[in-house]
Design a protein around this nucleic acid. Structure first.
Lengths: 113, 113
DNA sequence: ACTGATACCTGGAGGACCGAGGTATCGGAA
DNA sequence: TTCCGATACCTCGGTCCTCCAGGTATCAGT
């Protein structure tokens, strides 16, 4: 399944942070996991992911460390406390946003509690 | 409420099409309606809306006609058959996408039927 | 020795939004 | 009367994000 790339915008970083909540991961692995956990709906390109990771590290949402496995070096990313808070904020934002979309799609009949 | 503008991307045109489903509207009115129907969640700027409308007209999703009310001229937009189909497609895309996001956020536990 | 998978990275093109600015009319207030 | 805010349309430029294509290197299997 392929999406209007626009939909991805604004959600990618949240999705990446979400992946790191349970365990440290390296880039290549994240792409696989994103596809798997979304039911093969998300196919994030490397050219999208790596810049995001670098930006998030600069912002202090994740930290990284290198680890060699069988001579193949992987760069693992770890969710920081600051990143966890950012994830919570993004999730809340997403909830509000998708609620708003439902509201408009349903013709405004949606009741906001 | 203000959002990471990225979230809006990819959904704006769907939201606009959705507004026109029930009745013809003019630009200024759409901005008001979007805010109202979303529970004051969406505040679309004019600089965002007008280019979208022009592009959608060029694509044949909407048609327009001018009508003067009290000397103030309004440009009304009407959803075409082609636009209605596009709306249905976009809605389906949105459903799949938000499902995917939920799947990732919940750690992959989401069951895809 | 070669190829494909793993694993990282960057650069440039293209697309989408937003803020700021511009034009014009109307109604109400000073 | 004059001015200002609301209504109503539009465009331009900056910024941000995604994607494609390309580059590097190691490892496993043929």
């Amino acid at each position: 399944m392929k999406f209007d790339k626009g939909l991805m915008a604004g959600s990618s970083s949240m999705l990446v942070l979400s992946l790191l909540k349970k365990e440290d991961m390296y880039g290549y692995q994240m792409i696989e996991q994103l596809a798997k956990r979304s039911g093969d709906v998300f196919e994030m390109g490397e050219g999208t992911l790596y810049p995001i990771l670098h930006a998030m590290e600069k912002s202090g949402y994740v930290s990284s460390y290198r680890q060699a496995i069988n001579g193949r070096e992987r760069k693992y990313y770890h969710l920081t406390e600051r990143g966890r808070k950012q994830l919570d904020a993004k999730k809340e934002e997403w909830k509000q946003f998708s609620k708003g979309v439902e509201g408009v799609l349903s013709g405004g009949a949606y009741a906001f509690a």
